[in-house]
Amino acid sequence: MEALLAATTSIAATRNAQATLPAFASVVETHKAMVYSIAWQFLRDRVAADELAQDVFLQLHKNWTRIESPAHLVYWLRKVATHRAIDAARKRKIQAETSLEETDEPTVLERVHDSFLSSYLQRMVASLPEKQRSVIILRYQEDMDLEEIAKILSMNVSTVKTQISRALELLRGKVSRRLGKGTAPHDSI
C-alpha cells in the first residue's frame, strides 16, 4: 500500500512538473540558440552545427516524457548537446587551421576590428584540447557555475577549475603572441 502511494505521488509530481513545461515548439524556439551555439563552438561548421542541433531536438522529442521540469530541460539539452558535439568533433578531427568550412557569425554584421579578435578567440577555443574546450564553452558561453559544469561533464569540481585555469593560460598566451597585447592579469575562475 505504501509503495503504491509512493509511486502514485511520484507520478503526480512528475506530471505537475511536466505540466509546467512549455509546448515543444516553444522549447525549440527558446533554446535553439543555446544548442546551436554549443555545437558551433565545437564544430566550427555552420551546416554541421545545424544538423547536430536538429538531432538534439529530435532526441528531446523522443524523450519528452522523461523531462521532469524546465530546469531539467535546460540541463538535459546542455548535456546532450555537449556530449554529441564532443563526439562529432572527435569524428571530424577538427584542427586549429582556418578553412573554408569554418563559418562565421550569424547574419548580424559586426565591426571588423572587434570581430577579428572575437573570431580569433573562437578559433583558439576550438583548438583547445577537448576537456578544456568543453569547460570554457560551458563557463563563458553558457555562464554555468563550476558545480553545474562538473555535473554535465562528469568531472570533479577541482578538475573543472584546473581545466579552466589551463585553458585561460593557453588562450592568453596565444592572444598575447599573435596580437602583441600585454599579458592579461590573472583570471578569476
Binding site: 576537456k131 578544456q132 581545466q163 596565444k174
Partner: peptide, 23 residues
C-alpha cells in the same frame, strides 16, 4: 607592435590524466 623577441614558447596542452573520459 612590440618588436618580436624570443617569447617563452607556449607549452603544448598536457594530456589530462586526472579523469577517465566518459563521453
Amino acid at each position: 607592435k612590440e618588436p618580436k623577441g624570443d617569447s617563452n614558447p607556449q607549452p603544448k596542452p598536457d594530456k589530462d590524466d586526472e579523469e577517465s573520459e566518459r563521453y
